[in-house]
Design a protein around this nucleic acid. Sequence first.
DNA 1: ATCTACGGATTGTTCAACAATCCTTCGATT
DNA 2: AATCGAAGGATTGTTGAACAATCCGTAGAT
Lengths: 227, 227
Amino acid sequence: MATFDSAARTIPGRLRVAVPSVAERVAQELRRQLAEGTLIPGARLTESTIAEDLGVSRNTVREAFAELASERLVVRHPNRGVFVASLGAEDIHDLYAVRRAIEVSAIRGGGSPDDVAAVRAAVEEGKRAAAAGDDEAGGTANQHFHGAIVALAGSHRLNTIMAQVLAEMRLFFHKAAADALFYQRYLPDNEKICEALEAGQLDRAGDLLLAYLDRSEDNLAEVHGRD
Amino acid sequence: MATFDSAARTIPGRLRVAVPSVAERVAQELRRQLAEGTLIPGARLTESTIAEDLGVSRNTVREAFAELASERLVVRHPNRGVFVASLGAEDIHDLYAVRRAIEVSAIRGGGSPDDVAAVRAAVEEGKRAAAAGDDEAGGTANQHFHGAIVALAGSHRLNTIMAQVLAEMRLFFHKAAADALFYQRYLPDNEKICEALEAGQLDRAGDLLLAYLDRSEDNLAEVHGRD
DNA sequence: ATCTACGGATTGTTCAACAATCCTTCGATT
DNA sequence: AATCGAAGGATTGTTGAACAATCCGTAGAT
């Protein structure tokens, strides 16, 4: 149903815009559905079904699966199929181990004024979302905040890793983060961390962030334990 | 005779050993050639050639390429082909940013006695290699050392990330690390870091490791600058 | 010398087929 | 009745061939 036809042809002398390959677009579409919650963890993804739905070949779906599997968004069970990744308690701990490493390291290294400003912007974005009572926006603002922190390090690879970690966590949130105050509770922390960062108190910012992450992990583990 | 086959395959209660898929084996083989240096950075990998050489289908090669590309060992140029990744100065800095984040975080968290013992074992392995004058073994011992440090965190994901980082760096070393004393130079550092770790002086171990990585990066950047 | 058109080669994608494997169902045996 | 094993169907894994789209080098034209 979400078939994409290409009206964007490249005329010889025309500007060549890098159009993603079909496999990449399939991966994008699946990623969207995963983040949106249309595909719930544990669900099975049948090659032929998706191929038909998206109007592409099975082989192309296969390539998309390979990409998503490398991002841990789906799991391949050999000869059985691919399933939407479902996270357990160990995964939560694991993901937070990665976040602790990356985020704390990034904030301890500081960053350019522009990068710091981006962190500040994310904090304000979160405040606005809270004021408007928009949980969805609050969640994305929170992710922007932590993404901006990692961006302080100015490392392409770290940004990629963080993006994948956040994508994985998003996969999990759909069941957990129904409660409204989930993000709002952390707003004061974000503010303090940002202030320390702006003041150049990097070690302090790192400590605050570390405490934040520990608390966040506990909170999430708790929520997860009660299903 | 079909009965011979069917009798061999149906052994009830037998443990099914997971045999890697063909695509995975192709990826493994390419990874091996990349680490070994048979495939040098910048080299082009033609689908049909590799398919013939390995006796597999072009589609299968394609899946292997997707996997290697997700590990950054090769890069895809749309409609042009895949090439062995060639690292530049920015990549060195980037890779060390990841290593700083992961390794320092891991060592600061300490680890179980077994994990610490693994670090010690890697140090001794390096000493033996140095005593034997085996540079190749010295290099792998060094990678074991840093791998063991990351393993302290006990995070599957961090281990995977580190393994990929090391694989990327291996790609680069083939041109750079021809000099014999490249690893030996760092042996005393490894020893000190390990001692601090064993003594439970985690912050100190982290600082030492950080200094080590900075120096290692400078060293590598220097070597890279002169080609 | 620059530009353009053409041709060969390679990639991107599809399709169809087949083997291998899994899951389920259905009998058959104890 | 419960267990075991043997078909049957469905899905994945892999292949091979085909075709369109794109890139690159080269030859001709201006």
